[in-house]
């Protein structure tokens, strides 16, 4: 199904294409963003280039976008290459933690998932599924309660913030045997990007938290690439260990996400049945509605 995207709300956003780590210098990489074929490369001088690929152009073909006049903006932020296929109106959201000297940003992999970006964001914000989907890792029956938490939409920064989120985790800290409540803060600063802050073992007293993020690249209405990563204070676990952990977690979410129906996120309040635990998802759907997003969602009937 070839359909174009003509929703300015999403076209004018910056979207990630790859982590900088994974670009092989001198090679042309091909991908898709919002139905459009897009290629990118890092030249010999280390500069990043992104351009529209025409159907006639062979994949992986060397190309000079400046000469061909089909260049797209390219920027390197948060360890990723970002582009925009519309008119970028706003700057990319900041992640101050990524700039802290004693932290390491570990991209933990990119996952293709056959669902809309909105469904994937909602799953990222959801705690209620931990005991059932991430059994023994992020949750465990019978500890299924989602305690009251707070959600606000920050007017000044135009982002959703869920605070005071607590959920029982079977192995809350490496040092402790038993489970305990772990505190989370969720941040949705971009319609297709979300971050969660989770208490960092050993740094609780300082109030510093590990950051886990998911930056989504919507390829089509129902196909998304999820770029995931963690920004940890000290690398007690190996790089491989962190990657493996995130891949297990996403591997557990993926079959659930791909069995959600409809695949596009319904914004009508009467499309599905919310409960108190879904406060952040309700806020997210309302926020998208207010922005007038139509791509990858089923807008509420006027």
């Amino acid at each position: 199904m070839t359909q174009s995207c003509n929703d300015p709300v999403i076209l004018n956003e910056w979207h990630p294409l790859t982590s900088i780590d994974e670009i092989t210098q001198g090679l042309v990489h091909d991908t898709v963003l919002l139905e459009q074929p897009v290629s990118y490369a890092m030249d010999d001088a280390g500069a990043l280039h992104v351009w529209h690929r025409t159907p006639a152009q062979p994949v992986h073909a060397p190309h000079d976008p400046a000469k061909a006049g089909n260049a797209l903006p390219a920027r390197s932020e948060h360890g990723y290459l970002w582009t925009c296929v519309g008119e970028p109106t706003e700057d990319l959201f900041p992640v101050p933690e990524l700039l802290e000297a004693d932290r390491q940003n570990v991209p933990t992999g990119v996952f293709g998932v056959n669902v809309s970006a909105g469904r994937a964001i909602e799953n990222f914000l959801d705690m209620g599924h931990f005991p059932f989907v991430h059994t023994g890792i992020l949750g465990e029956e019978p500890h299924t309660e989602v305690k009251e938490y707070d959600v606000e939409v920050s007017e000044s920064r135009d982002e959703i913030l869920a605070t005071r989120c607590r959920f029982y985790q079977p192995k809350a800290a490496l040092a402790s045997e038993g489970g305990a409540d772990v505190e989370y803060v969720y941040r949705v600063p971009h319609i297709n990007c979300a971050l969660l802050y989770k208490s960092s073992p050993g740094y609780e007293a300082e109030g510093r938290m590990d950051v886990i993020y998911m930056f989504l690249q919507p390829m089509t209405r129902e196909w998304t690439r999820a770029h995931t990563g963690m920004c940890v204070i000290d690398l007690e676990n190996s790089y491989q260990g962190i990657r493996y952990f995130q891949q297990v977690i996403f591997g557990q979410d993926k079959p659930i996400l791909e069995n959600q129906f409809p695949k596009q996120l319904p914004l009508d309040t009467r499309a599905e049945t919310p409960i108190r635990a879904d406060k952040s998802a309700i806020a997210y759907r309302r926020w998208l509605s207010r922005k007038g997003l139509t791509y990858g969602v089923i807008p509420a009937a006027a």
Binding site: I256, Q260, F261, E272
Partner: peptide
Amino acid sequence: RCLHRGVR
């Protein structure tokens, strides 16, 4: 479809 979040 579960009426909560649409999962089959």
